[in-house]
Design a protein around this nucleic acid. Structure first.
Length: 1066
RNA sequence: GGGCUCUUAGCUCAGUCGGUUAGAGCGCGCCUCUGAUAAGGGCGAGGUCCGUGGUUCGAAUCCACGAGGGCCCA
């Protein structure tokens, strides 16, 4: 340590000292204030206003609850890429979006108001309900905005779009009108998965992931076969309520059915199911093929009720009947089952729909009427039993779908629904999707698969707070009028316009229009639209498409969008559908898809499982930058495991950078380093500097490429490696350059280089870690140069300077580090403490040119390994008889393989047999590179040249500690003579004294008076190394007079010598 | 039943153009270094690269089949 009195320099330094600890949350709050105060975001937008455009569309977040940490993942991607584009000068929209209507909202508002059914909503009043929905949107849009700001996301928050806005609705109307003009809109009866609580059908994409294991009552029911006394069809069902809708019984024509007699009654069922259904005692008295049963008729289970009367129940064929469970005879209720309905359509079966939209039996079903279908199982069982139709009932566990919003069990129900026919647009959508760049690319395949399989789009929901479908079917002429805009509505309206507050129920329902077919007055259908219409229209509605705005053509299609993978079949799909319909092309050029967020053990997060992490709490505990780094570093192919454990990991890595930063600031202050001083030309700087700057250029390229390809995690990983190198090699190797007392050019070069490395690094990391990089930038750049851009986010993205690239230097440094690692290993294995200097280290196994280049790092290697000299084997005069390693020759398969083919194995084996020759082969090549080694096999000879070999050294130690890694072998001479021993002792003393200084609470730059006593070894050590010790520990005197009684003291045993060290501040 | 995808150390994951000794981080144990360091370095334990077959001089890597997980469709 050599330090001059630093106090004046530090006081004048432009760099502020660092706090003791890196505290992300408090630093981030400070930076948020800073940005607000300086209007940094506004200045960024102004700066780029004339730049090229980069168009991004924000997928709307449902403004329904506070945002979760999974939203924060996606928002981090959005912010990272927008910030990167901003640093490259792109003009952007920065428009955030909220999803504001649909079933999501309604269900939450219902919960809030304590409602249990649609009737509660009707009683409450649609107007009041709409107001409540609106209010919830306002509340949570504000909450989510504040949270996003906290995350560091930069958006034009005052310009957010809302999908419940009239403008958004009008654009959807326009889309629907275009669909209608092409003949794609139709109302049709379909069996739909139905939520009785929500009172509406669900579409196919809402059914996914909703199956849960559940126990139901399963029934064996016997039904009398017409014309065959005492003969019964035995059917099995797990949904007793659907028996009232039975119209047929399906059998597999290829299956063999058994007639079984029990208690004088004959049952027909599939032979394979007999013992399961009737027990092992059942006696088979006859057999019949399924095909022969077709045309039988039977009496239905509820034929006596008016609602089910008058239906002829037949036995019908169906290939999908299985004998795995049940009886091989399937109860068919086309009005209450999806497959049943399809089968019924094919065969022209009647459709009985016994329940209304709330799941309640309609009139005509006697005691069932008015009762909830989900609650009648026990009574149906009792009723059947009383009427002698029940054979037995049992509990049955199976997977059954639930409503994804309210968790109620779903039923299937036939109803009139509105659809957009998909067949005509399928191919154009496939074509449009094929032109999109999907990242990762499997997402494109997924979309194509979805499109090939998509059914007609069910767009109607029997709800309230949603897009009002602009469908006006005319009772008089049958024409369907589809309104395409508010103006269109005004043109056709005959009444109700005056009360039209907004395009929502109940107001819109009051507007009556003239039919476009016959001018008769027509009312709107009551249904509202699928919420994916709301989100899908956003590329148009937010750009004034309907008004023919210029903005639309400037920003459409989007350059980039990103959301979770599930959005392929949701938002990406609905946008694509609408955009292909309106403009015949995809609304986005590239799409980035990421996976799911789980807790840190890999389990899904659920509030009820107690493993969900609140965003606000996470931001305050780990910090937004740490979260962002964690998200950005994730490989998007895999689910992310998010939690405080992984965050601690990230923070530890950040600490590495913090240490480098802190090191720089500490010494730059002491030395009064001025970053605005003239730069020392790079070619005049130390190899270490040139190496680090070269590495930096590589990092710039890697980061840039990662950002351009939307694979930021690659950049994050490269940055991580760079930070490791910066700390564990550049600073570790270079730290003495900052300590020396003279202010020479090398010291200046060291400061300049580290300053450049840090300030460039923070620009590269600014998109990922906007807060901390700003903090560092303000201190390292703005503090010293008021003319620099006011924020790191107002600087330009770094570009690599190829003149600073030196790949040879990087390669050599890599080898030097391998040599150091091998040397450490050798010393360690021999039990030689690093503090003990040794005479020499020998390096072998690498090419002569590499050795040569390595010699320029000799000082680093010697210092790291604490040896006096590093020699390569050749210059040390060793030849083939050296005794600490031997050379092995192996085949270079990469070269030899293609040439020799099958023979290469034999050659390799032959070579391995004669290891004693390897040394000779090596020296032949060393003497003459053109030498050809000829290997004689039994039947032919093979000629091998230098490049056909790989040479490596194998340790064979004696007086040397030897270790090999990669192809490098390092041997350290283990002999310790007296001079080395004294030097080792001196270093022990320095180390002990430094520890004593620290424990005595001295400052790094304090001077001391020092006293050391001990035996004769110590005396001779002080004679040889006293000056060095004085120098290192900043002593002004050694053993001068007697120490005061308050002197700090330590008395260790060093290298077997008892030593006493005392010191006081000078 | 069909499609997409994944499977590498106890955990989380790298592994480029196929090249013969498969790596990192975390965790664990031992050692070590340290006046930037809640750090760093070394060693150790820990691998059927999911399995089988094929292509190839050579397979974690390419192909086929199979198993298991995830997702999607039916």
């Amino acid at each position: 340590m050599h330090r001059d009195d630093p106090s004046d320099a530090a006081a004048a330094s432009p760099f502020q000292p660092l706090p003791a600890e890196l505290d992300f949350p408090s630093m981030e709050r400070r930076i948020l204030d800073f940005w607000a105060e300086h209007q940094t975001f506004e200045r960024l937008r102004a700066k780029n206003a004339a730049g090229p455009r980069w168009s991004f569309i924000d997928g709307p977040i449902t403004a329904n609850n506070p945002m979760g940490v999974h939203h924060a993942w996606g928002r981090t991607y959005k912010d990272v890429y927008q910030r990167y584009r901003a640093m490259r000068g792109y003009h952007q929209r920065y428009q955030n979006g909220f999803d504001c209507q649909g079933l999501w909202l309604e269900v939450e508002v219902e919960k809030e108001l304590g409602f249990e059914s649609k009737r509660d909503i009707e009683d409450f009043g649609l107007e009041a309900f709409a107001d409540a929905c609106r209010e919830r949107v306002d509340t949570y849009a504000a909450v989510q905005t504040a949270q996003s700001v906290r995350l560091g996301q930069w958006m034009d928050w005052d310009d957010s779009y809302y999908t419940h806005a009239d403008g958004n609705i009008e654009h959807i109307w326009q889309f629907l009108r275009r669909c209608h003009q092409r003949g794609w809109i139709e109302a049709a009866q379909r069996a739909m998965p139905w939520c009785a609580r929500c009172g509406t059908a669900l579409s196919q994409h809402e059914l996914i992931d909703t199956y849960e294991e559940i126990t139901h009552d399963a029934l064996y029911v016997r039904l009398p076969i017409h014309g065959r006394p005492n003969a019964w069809l035995l059917i099995w069902t797990t949904t007793p309520w659907t028996l009232a809708a039975n119209v047929a019984a399906a059998v597999d024509p290829d299956l063999t059915y058994a007639e079984v007699e029990v208690d004088g009654q004959r049952y027909v069922l599939a032979e394979a199911t007999v013992s399961e259904a009737l027990g092992n005692d059942a006696r088979i008295v006859g057999r019949v093929q399924g095909a022969d049963m077709l045309g039988w008729t039977y009496e239905g289970p509820f034929d006596h009720l008016p609602g089910a009367a008058g239906v002829e129940h037949r036995v019908i064929p169906w290939d999908d009947v299985g004998a795995d469970e049940g009886t091989g005879i399937v109860h068919i209720a086309p009005g209450a089952g999806e497959e049943d309905f399809r089968l019924g359509q094919e065969l022209g079966l009647p459709v009985l729909v016994p329940i209304d939209e709330n799941g309640v039996y309609v009139d005509g079903y006697d005691w069932l009427s008015g009762r909830d279908a989900r609650e009648v199982a026990a009574d149906v069982i009792a009723d059947l039993e009383r009427r002698g139709l029940l054979l037995r009932a049992h509990r049955y566990e199976h997977r059954y779908p639930h409503c994804w919003r309210c968790q109620e069990e779903l039923v299937f129900r036939v109803d009139d629904e509105w659809f957009i026919r998909a067949d005509e647009i399928r191919q154009p959508m496939l074509d449009a999707a094929a032109a999109v760049r999907w990242t990762p690319d499997y997402a494109g395949a997924r979309m194509a698969d979805w499109l090939r399989n998509m059914g007609d789009w069910n767009i109607s929901r029997r709800r309230y707070w949603g897009l009002p479908l602009p469908f006006y079917p005319c009772q008089a002429c049958g024409h369907l009028t589809v309104i395409g805009s508010k103006r269109h509505l005004e043109e056709r309206a005959v009444s109700g316009l005056e009360q039209l507050r907004e395009l929502h129920r109940p107001w819109i329902d009051q507007v009556v229009i003239r039919c476009e077919g016959c001018e008769a007055p027509v009312r709107r259908v009551e249904a509202v639209g699928d919420a994916w219409l709301d989100a899908g229209i956003v590329p148009f509605s937010t750009l004034g498409y309907l008004e023919g705005s210029q903005e639309f053509h400037r920003w459409y299609p989007a350059d980039f969008i990103t959301e979770m993978r599930e959005q392929i079949r949701l938002w990406f799909y609905s946008m694509l559908f609408m955009s292909v319909t309106l403009e015949n092309r995809a609304p986005y050029r590239s799409v980035f898809v990421y996976e799911k967020l789980n807790d840190e053990t890999g389990r899904a997060m659920h509030k009820s499982w107690g493993n969900a992490i609140d965003f606000g709490e996470a931001a305050e505990r780990m910090g937004a930058d740490v979260m962002r780094w964690l998200y950005a570093g994730q490989n998007p192919l895999y689910n992310i495991n998010f939690g405080y454990g992984p965050a601690t990991d990230v923070k530890r890595r950040m600490l590495t950078l913090w240490n480098v930063y802190s090191f720089f600031v500490t010494y730059a202050r002491l030395d009064g380093f001025d970053p605005t001083a003239p730069r020392i030309p790079v070619e005049q700087r130390a190899d270490l500097d040139r190496w680090a700057l070269s590495r930096l250029q590589g990092l710039i390229d890697t980061m840039t490429e990662a950002m351009e390809e939307s694979l930021v995690h690659r950049g994050v990983r490269a940055a991580h490696r760079f930070i490791e190198d910066l700390s564990n090699w550049y600073v570790r190797r270079g730290r003495r350059r900052y300590w020396k007392s003279s202010a020479d050019a090398d010291k200046q070069a060291a400061y300049q280089t580290l300053h450049e490395l840090l300030t460039t690094l923070v620009r590269l990391l600014a998109p990922v870690m906007p807060f901390w990089t700003e903090d560092i930038y303000q201190n390292l750049v703005r503090g010293a140069d008021p003319n620099a851009p006011a924020s790191v986010h107002l600087t330009d993205w770094p570009t690599a300077d190829n003149s600073l690239r030196d790949e040879e230097l990087e390669a050599s440094m890599d080898i030097a580090r391998v040599v150091v690692a091998a040397g450490h290993q050798a010393r360690n294995e021999a039990g030689l403490k690093l503090r003990q200097p040794l005479r020499s280290a020998y390096v072998s196994g690498i090419e002569p040119e590499e050795i040569e280049r390595l010699c320029s790092f000799k000082a680093h290697i010697c210092d790291e390994l604490n040896v006096k000299d590093m020699l390569n084997v050749k210059e040390a005069g060793f030849t083939s008889d050296i005794d600490f390693f031997e050379t092995r020759a192996k085949l270079n398969f990469r070269r030899v393989g293609p040439r020799l083919g099958r023979l290469s194995r034999l050659v390799a084996a032959e070579l391995a047999k004669n290891t004693e020759q390897h040394e000779r082969i090596w020296s032949q090549f060393m003497n003459d590179r053109e030498y050809k080694y000829v290997l004689h096999l039994d039947w032919e000879k093979v000629e091998l040249e230098f490049d056909d070999f790989v040479f490596e050294a194998v340790p064979r130690s004696r007086e040397y500690a030897v270790a090999s890694r990669d192809r490098v072998t390092v041997a350290v001479r283990t002999e310790i003579d007296d001079a080395l021993r004294r030097e080792g002792l001196a270093r022990e003393i320095i180390h002990a004294t430094q520890n004593l200084r620290r424990s005595a609470g001295l400052d790094v730059s304090d001077r001391i008076r020092l006293w050391i006593d001990g035996g004769s070894a110590l005396t001779s050590t002080l004679a040889d190394h006293g000056a060095e010790i004085i120098d290192e520990v900043l002593a002004v005197s050694l053993n001068d007079g007697s120490p005061p009684s308050q002197a700090a003291e330590t008395a260790p045993t060093l290298d077997g010598e008892p030593v006493r060290i005392r010191l006081v501040r000078a």
